[in-house]
Amino acid sequence: MFSFELLLDAVVLGVMLGCFYAAVSIGLSVSFGLLDVPHVAHPAFLVLGAYGAYALNQAGWDPIVAGIVLTPLFYVLGVVAYRVYFETFEKRGSDAGVRGLAFFFGVTFIVEVGIIMVFGVDQRTVQAGYIGKAIDIGDVRIPMRMIAAFGGALALTLALTAYFSLTFSGRAIRAVAQDEIALRLMGANPLKVKQLAFGIATAVVAVAGALLIIVGPVEPTTHRVYIGRTFCVVVLAGLGSMHGTLVAGIVLGVVESIVLTLYGASWAPAISFAMLLVVLAIRPQGMFGR
């Protein structure tokens, strides 16, 4: 029953899926990995992005275009969320751990319920010319939607990696993660830099959310499995490592894809969580940890 071809299929699909996982995780890699914000609402924002793309798609827009159009809105959302978090927890510094976590957990929950109230509990999908078709490369059959997501994910991840290593503000964000005082001495305002970073991390989530709904149907509770996937990728990568995020995403994608082929879809949600637990137990600093 199990053949080499099936395995090859699984690996190829896994790599594509992995790039997609990297794209949905890269925002978290900034907000949690670099800025140390306990951003458990990241997956909920992701699903929010997916529903945003769905709504615009209903009006005839291409989902990826919709995702890009939504980025300014998400940027503002990120800035506001960070501002509230900073003013109430980071600045006062009191008991920030428990309450900061509870804050983002509450946000998660509100987003989920809000989506249910607006869109209902049913699964949603998007329409586009490339969705539903498939192409054959050799013996491997690849759905077009995976290719679209793969391309978008790769572009997104590479763009963000380039931003952080090449531009001035990108480097300032990396600097603030490492040495806030030094940055302050250079005359930059760490709060502004962090706010910018969190905004960008959230803006990126709009596009990632569009990719999410291209890959498959989305429902209001989809964010729950993505808590596992995104945190698994970010922790496995090593907090704040951008190229690590890509590698970790691919590792997760391939593992998931192979387990899926071998044991069936009902085990899929547990894989990323199990991997996350193993990584936390064995190598909490991840593959490319600082």
């Binding site: 949690f32 306990p38 458990v40 751990g97 976590l101 729950r224 499995v225 808590i227 596992g228 945190f231 922790v235 009902s266 085990w267 949600p269 547990a270 969580f273 199990a274 996350l276 637990l277 936390l280 909490p284």
Partner: peptide
């Protein structure tokens, strides 16, 4: 999980939930 601190512990408890449910 209790050797983990802060958010890592919390995420680990989510992981446990999903794994047990699965």
């Amino acid at each position: 999980t209790l050797r983990l601190h802060g958010i890592f512990f919390s995420i680990a408890t989510v992981a446990m939930t999903i794994i047990l449910e699965t």
